[in-house]
Simulated scan of single mutants.
Amino acid sequence: MEQTVPLNVVIVDDEAPARERLRDLLSDIAAEQPTRLVGMAGNGIEALRLIENARADVLLVDIRMPAMDGIEFAQHASRLEPHPHIIFVTAYDEYAVQAFDLNAIDYLLKPVRAERLSAALDKVRRVAPVTHEQIDTFAEPRRHLTCSERGKIHLIPISDVVYLKAELKYVTARTGEREYLLEESLVQLEQEFPERFVRIHRNCLVARSAVVGFERSVGEEGGEGHWSVRLNHVPEALPISRRQWAHVRSELGG
């Protein structure tokens, strides 16, 4: 008889008794669903740090947590390769639609029964890998972007981003302190954060709250100049394309 390979599991819950209960349930069902507990975390930020260095096949995730809730954590975790599978474990049923929008394997209500957890882990073993195309639609906007550098995951608060600029296959996220390279689509970011950013050029979005003014350059030999936007925290002015100027003026009052 072929031996079942253990699944690497991470438990994410802000309540220690809930984490311990899930750990005990995993031990109870080990005969039919062998697992290896590789770590536990009290919120989404701690969990992202944990899975930087620990390969996880399955994430057992609570939803209502401080610092970063389970929905946003799942949005970030779903971008990792290889993609860990998400099982939400929560006391509330109103997040089910959001959970399945994120291609969660299952949605377990507390108190979790051993047979339900076993069935959810069995789904993980049977399901096909999730692709990036399946997880591009987000239930609601994230509060952070993620950047992977030298094996570390950097969390970038959306509120700190001054502009987003597409360059080759990456998007540069500029904050007041530095630049980060994101493996994301500018179009997708524009769709996810329409209230936060406005497009000024085919390759650039700026944060509405960062705009401090506009300036117009003088064209050569009296020709028509072009408009640029000035932003908080960055020295350079960013050019606005002629095509986008009417839209920018309408959106930002230029």
Score class of each variant (00 low, 15 high):
I156T: 14
F214W: 13
E195G: 12
N203A: 13
R196F: 01
L145S: 02
K165H: 14
G219I: 00
A173Q: 11
P157D: 09
V211L: 02
H226G: 09
T146E: 08
N203R: 03
E190P: 08
E224S: 11
E224Y: 06
V162D: 05
C204Y: 06
E167R: 15
G151D: 14
I200A: 02
F197M: 01
E220W: 03
Q188M: 01
I156F: 10
K152F: 13
R208N: 05
K152L: 14
G223A: 05
E183Q: 10
K152V: 10
S217M: 04
A166G: 09
V162W: 13
I153N: 07
L205P: 11
D160Q: 12
A173D: 09
N203V: 08
E149C: 11
L168W: 13
R208K: 14
F193R: 03
E190F: 06
T175S: 11
G222P: 11
V161S: 10
C204T: 11
E179K: 14
S148R: 15
H201N: 12
S148L: 14
K152T: 12
E149L: 14
G151S: 11
G223P: 00
G151H: 10
V171G: 12
G151Q: 12
E167L: 12
E221L: 07
L189M: 15
C204E: 00
S159H: 13
